[in-house]
Design a binder for these strands. Structure first.
Lengths: 227, 227
DNA sequence: GCTATAATTTCGATATGCCTAAATTCTATA
DNA sequence: TATAGAATTTAGGCATATCGAAATTATAGC
């Protein structure tokens, strides 16, 4: 099936919204796509006609099986490009997203497979978001926001959520990437900032920022020291 | 200036036709873009309005300076991708064109420069077509069709002209690439096929095929043997 | 130079994807 | 449970880029 870039964007964004919030309201989609709700209604009716979404008027949309399968191909294309740009072309990770946004619509199945091969069949992009496999399998990566970790607990960064270029540049400067080990040394009272150990350095992180850093709790700092 | 992929395609194709044949008739463009002449007339009027082409009704179009400058950016994007796909991703050269056709519209100035840098600021794509520089300089590569070389003359392949995937696959099998040395051993009478030496092998080439292989005459076979 | 034919343009239509404004439906709260 | 305000859809329009058919202009042969 040959889809317009617009339709591809709809599918991708419906997918991303529904994975987090379930059935997607028209307005949420409209906001993400930066178009009016009226336009979304129109397009969504068309997508329903194509059998790609299930649209209950006034109650949002949800991808059908075939819609989801197509959405996953776009997500795959996007994330493969992001990783490729960062890894092979050394594009700064905060810029990769914008470029990938264009490139994702210009990636054939064959070339996608080639990228995946060159990258060693990766399962996550530079932000830690899972890269769907060719047949649409997605590894859920989960994690909890860093600011939910109690003082003294350690973990591994698994993904950066809701990232913006500015946030990514900041985190990059701090050396906070997926795969890095972090430990919460202490938390200032009254929902205050966190003192965090990253590698051999100590940084102070605001809660807003920490909330975007998803970690897998690994072991308490105490336990790690015993090892 | 932000242009639609369609407009980019018009500019690119006008550029390529006008470099070879001068002022471009509507019909020639229509045929290349696989759309009707009526559609071309409409679009061409629009391009003229944007100051990108000079349109003399009933006498074809020609790019203005700013139109040509934009066209060169597209050609640059296309050829950078082609080379990158072949060299870095090992895509077969007969497939690179189709992929690049899509990717060329999704290449930012910055990423184009990055590709060029990674490739070592190349001046030609895998087919030997010149890659315009960032500021629009194009190295004319010329060459004469291989079948214009008299028997006994040698040369270097500089480019493959009017290539199709089938032709490219065939030439690839014969080991005929830009940069390769070839020598015409003899030519069968009545516009017959050519016996050609390629590296240390000898192949027989039909005239149709040889006509697509552009070479720079280098030295006669006789002279080369003396060296 | 006239005319048949080819090239090109004009004209009216269509599909896509977006918009604004108005109408409708939903939902939370009094 | 009635209703105000929010969410959503409907209705009418617009720009882009395409088409086929008809009209116009160019050109080549007589």
């Amino acid at each position: 099936m040959e889809l317009s870039p617009q339709i591809e964007d709809y599918l991708k964004n419906i997918y991303q919204l529904q994975t987090r919030y379930g059935r997607v309201p028209t307005t949420a989609l409209a906001e993400r796509l930066a178009i009016t709700a009226a336009s979304v209604t129109g397009m969504v009716r068309k997508l329903a006609g194509l059998g790609l979404v299930d649209h209950e008027p006034y109650h949002g949309v949800r991808l059908t099986a075939s819609g989801e399968s197509l959405a996953l191909q776009i997500v795959r294309a996007h994330r493969l490009w992001e990783l490729y740009l960062v890894q092979a072309l050394e594009v700064p990770w905060d810029q990769a997203h914008v470029e990938a946004e264009q490139l994702e619509h210009a990636l054939s199945q064959g070339l996608a497979d080639r990228l995946a091969e060159v990258l060693g069949h990766p399962t996550a992009d530079p932000h830690g978001h899972p890269i769907p496999s060719r047949n649409g399998d997605v590894a859920r990566r989960g994690g909890v926001p860093l600011d939910h970790l109690p003082a003294g607990e350690a973990g591994v960064v698994v993904q950066i959520r809701d990232d913006t270029p500015e946030l990514l540049r900041y985190l990059g400067k701090l050396g906070i990437y997926p795969g890095e080990h972090v430990a919460v040394l202490d938390v200032a009272p009254f929902e205050g900032p966190l003192r965090v150990q990253i590698g051999d350095r100590t940084e102070v992180l605001g809660r807003r920022v920490a909330g975007h850093v998803m970690v897998h709790s690994e072991a308490t700092l105490h336990e790690r020291q015993r090892v």
